[in-house]
């Protein structure tokens, strides 16, 4: 039972929470606002908040100058591809761990997680060399594979936690009903785990979208996703606040919207079910 709270107290909480919330959100808000200003207005002293001449000019300039859509497509391809590939490999693995656990299951899971802790920079050059050898450098396929591999442990973990909540009896019932293993996974397990699989996809899509080590180091012109697109604005000549803001807004908007939808699942997903 929540205790009755006076309206005064509630108003105070509300004001404080909104203040803090807006403060945290402010950099994003400011970026979005600035993206609609002219360059001169963007560095106006004092800063302009809402009363300026709104313009969409920056967006078209950014698209023209840097071909935003190509970066966007690369981001979608790499993040989407790596996530789906990861799911296809992880679903059977998670099924095994959740429904046919052995004494080693926990060790395998922890080992998988530990590969995430391997510092990427420690193996950067070997991967770089291998990529040259295999002709994967600066290709979408190459990056898709790498991002799939770095997120695979998280995908397996998340699916494992979701699968474990599905009663084994239902899968046994399918087996008794004459379903083969493939049918059991395809017709019974997967549809039942749809919410879990969906949030796994969402979270890993976000992680892959924002990944900024491999995407910066293994791409040049051809396969560069939005992370690299933005990084190109860090050089001094690109220092136009309004355009930087427009580019930033375009880079984060898709994922921000996606993220807001999945924020509830995010907690369970990222904590591997350890916090509910």
């Amino acid at each position: 039972m929540a205790r009755a709270v006076t309206n005064n107290r509630k108003a105070f909480n509300t004001a404080l929470a909104w203040l803090v919330g807006l403060l945290i959100f402010f950099p994003i808000l400011w970026t979005v606002l600035t993206s609609f200003k002219t360059e001169a207005q963007a560095i106006n002293d004092p800063p302009l908040f809402l009363f300026f001449d709104w313009t969409l000019e920056n967006y078209s300039v950014v698209q023209e100058r840097s071909d935003y859509l190509r970066y966007l497509w690369n981001s979608v391809f790499i993040a989407g591809g790596s996530t789906l590939l990861g799911i296809v490999i992880a679903v059977p693995a998670a099924w095994s761990m959740a429904f046919v656990p052995s004494r080693r299951t926990k060790d395998v899971l922890l080992w998988m997680l530990s590969t995430k802790m391997l510092p990427a920079v420690g193996v950067l050059y070997p991967i770089y060399l291998l990529f040259i050898q295999l002709g994967l450098l600066d290709t979408r396929i190459g990056l898709t594979i790498v991002l799939m591999l770095i997120n695979l442990p998280i995908i397996v973990w998340m699916l494992y936690t979701y699968f474990r909540e599905i009663p084994a009896e239902i899968l046994e019932a399918a087996r008794m009903d004459g379903a083969s293993l493939r049918e059991e996974i395809l017709y019974v397990l997967t549809p039942m785990a749809v919410p879990g699989i969906a949030s796994t996809i969402l979270l890993n899509f976000i992680l892959a979208w924002n990944e900024a080590f491999w995407t910066l180091n293994l791409t040049a012109a051809n396969a560069a996703p939005l992370t690299a697109f933005i990084a190109s604005y860090s050089s001094p000549e690109g220092l136009f606040y309004a355009k930087l803001s427009a580019a930033s807004t375009m880079a984060i908007a898709p994922i921000l919207i996606l993220g807001w939808f999945s924020q509830k699942q995010l907690v369970r997903g990222l904590t591997f079910g350890a916090v509910k």
């Binding site: 239902i170 046994e172 019932a173 039942m192």
Partner: peptide
């Protein structure tokens, strides 16, 4: 099954 194990 005890829990009926219906496909939800």
């Amino acid at each position: 099954f005890q829990s009926y194990a219906l496909y939800p």
